[in-house]
Design a binder for these strands. Structure first.
Length: 495
RNA sequence: GGCCCCGUCGUCUAGUCUGGCCUAGGACACAGGCUUUUCAAGCCUGGUACACGGGUUCGAAUCCCGUCGGGGCUGCCA
């Protein structure tokens, strides 16, 4: 712990995704925790791309991840970047420890691979895939855990007819342990590993090896990652020791689980983070939600902005057990965050969700619509579905206008009286505050439901809506009269 | 199978390190009620949890052991 404190002045953490699939919830949470840790320690946050698997890596996923990170508000100090310039993505990179894409770091890995080979800490293995598979099957058949036999460990030259297939690390047979920032002491038995494959050739390193080299070269102090990496950690520590590197501090985050408690990213949720953006979730709500998957403040507060999270987050309070992804909680948090926004800010965020009619409408009108509907929305994407009728009255059935126990003729009568009253009201009186006066007598004469229900349907064309008088206030005199008249005509036709 | 990690309401969790304030708190969801012109929202109320079994102790969700359960990893993927 003393070491943590001493190093805290120069904290350097990284988020190293591999662009082989969509940037999902799990990745986003890992990125967030790293970002939070860096920001609250005045450290650096580095984005490194782990694309040693050329087959599966795709630039489009790299761009997607950059987009999603920016959307969430997680900025980084070093690493690759992408910018949209004239509708085209342009790549760039910043920082002094690059390149930040593993596919561009071959010479670096080669240097260390050769060093290990030269020092006798690694060796060429001539076993073919078939040899290895046969060995593996034989061990399994005997009920033994599969482990490389060490067949090529002490070879001094290539066996006849064989060529070097891959590079192996001479794994020391030792019991080892390390202190995890979240789970305390974790121990492993390295003698169970066998000689690990660290590269296909000096030109082509494998994940575990490349990570160790990069973390060292990029001066990473804390490795904060998912629990699925826990078994990799002792291996990486072994490589670091062989290379004479200082070991970073490790912290393994609990996994995010699907509702059946299996690893989320393994299940349905290879769902892109951008999907949440496109459905109208607020990035601050998403960050808030992600943070609470495995972390919780000391008190009972639940709604946090990114900035507030930064002040409150504490790696020591991170949970050890996996956390199930709970969509309802996300929705609730999103609604909470939407309420924290001003009408103008909400209007900004709503831009992509306004629809043609909403975009064409005057801003002042849209603001009123937002004010009337904001507490009913769970996502920005709900806007059109909830408030679309303000812009264009949907078609509805005349029968919908009828309040329980009333005849259609009676409803027509009510609507006509409402129309008469409203016509006499001044346009400036069309507001939620002043309008009740206009219908007060009618309500006394008929009852609330018999008056307000038909008015609601006439104005919204639907059975669920905000207060009809509020709608009238937003719509204004002219449009309100037009809709009430249309309703009367509709009944006329039905009768 | 082997190795590793984990185990408080249906879910996210507070409490566990530093036993007593815990007849276990909050939130989401759920149920009921209030409000009410609808649907939400809001407010009030309610139910449901310390995996199990042994210890240690005056006292255990908290400490120890065992069992069971869940998950991760087990690749020339990352």
């Amino acid at each position: 712990m003393v070491a943590t404190k001493a190093k805290s002045a120069s904290v350097r953490v990284r988020f190293p995704p591999s662009p082989t699939g969509h940037f999902h919830v799990g990745g986003a949470r890992t990125a967030l925790f790293n970002w939070l840790y860096a920001r609250q320690h005045g450290g650096k946050f580095i984005l490194r791309i782990e694309d040693t698997d050329a087959e599966r890596s795709d630039q489009k996923y790299e761009i997607e991840l950059v987009e999603a990170l920016k959307w969430l508000g997680l900025d980084w100090d070093e690493g690759v970047d992408w910018q949209l310039v004239n509708h085209e993505w342009q790549g760039s990179s910043r920082g002094e420890h690059g390149p930040y894409r593993q596919s561009e770091r071959a010479p670096v890995y080669k240097r260390y691979l050769e060093k290990l080979l030269h020092d006798g800490k690694a060796y060429y293995c001539h076993c073919t895939k078939e040899d290895l598979e046969a060995e593996r099957q034989a061990q399994l058949a005997e009920g033994m855990p599969p482990k490389y036999s060490g067949h090529c460990r002490n070879l001094t030259e290539s066996p006849r007819g064989k060529k070097p297939e891959l590079i192996r690390f001479k794994t020391p047979e030792a019991r080892m342990e390390f202190k995890d920032l979240i789970r305390g002491t974790v121990s492993f038995d390295a003698s169970l590993f066998g000689d690990l494959v660290i590269a296909r050739s000096v030109e082509s390193p494998l994940y575990n090896f490349a990570v160790v080299v990069d973390d060292y070269e990029m001066k990473i102090t804390h490795v904060i990652r998912g629990e699925d990496h826990l078994p990799n950690t002792p291996k990486q520590i072994l490589f670091a020791r062989a290379l004479g590197f200082p070991e970073p501090l490790y912290g393994h985050l609990p996994l995010i689980l699907a509702s059946d408690r299996s690893k989320l990213s393994k299940r349905f949720a290879e769902v892109s983070m951008l999907k949440y953006r496109d459905e109208g979730y607020l990035p601050e709500a998403m960050a808030n939600f992600l943070a609470f998957l495995g972390w919780h403040p000391k008190d009972d507060r639940e709604v946090f902005s990114l900035e507030e999270l930064k002040g409150e987050f504490d790696l020591k309070r991170v949970q050890k057990a996996g956390a199930v992804f709970n969509q309802e909680k996300l929705d609730w948090l999103n609604a909470q965050h939407m309420r924290r926004l001003s009408i103008d800010e909400l209007l900004n965020r709503l831009q992509p969700f306004l629809g043609e009619k909403g975009i064409a409408a005057p801003k002042s009108f849209v603001r009123k619509v937002i004010a009337a509907e904001r507490e009913r929305m769970k996502t920005l994407g709900d806007f059109l579905k909830l408030a679309g009728f303000f812009f264009e009255l949907p078609d509805y059935d005349a029968a919908l206008l009828v309040w329980k126990g009333n005849s259609m003729a009676r409803i027509k009568e009510v609507l006509e009286k409402i129309l008469a009253r409203l016509e006499k009201s001044r346009a400036s009186d069309f507001s939620r505050e002043k309008l009740p006066g206009a219908v007060a007598e009618l309500i006394k004469e008929y009852d609330r439901g018999a008056v307000l229900w038909p008015l609601r349907v006439a104005l919204s064309g639907q059975s669920a809506s905000p207060d009809p008088l509020a709608i009238a206030g937003v719509l204004g005199k002219e449009e309100t009269l037009r809709r009430v008249t249309a309703a009367i005509n509709k009944i006329g036709l039905a009768l």
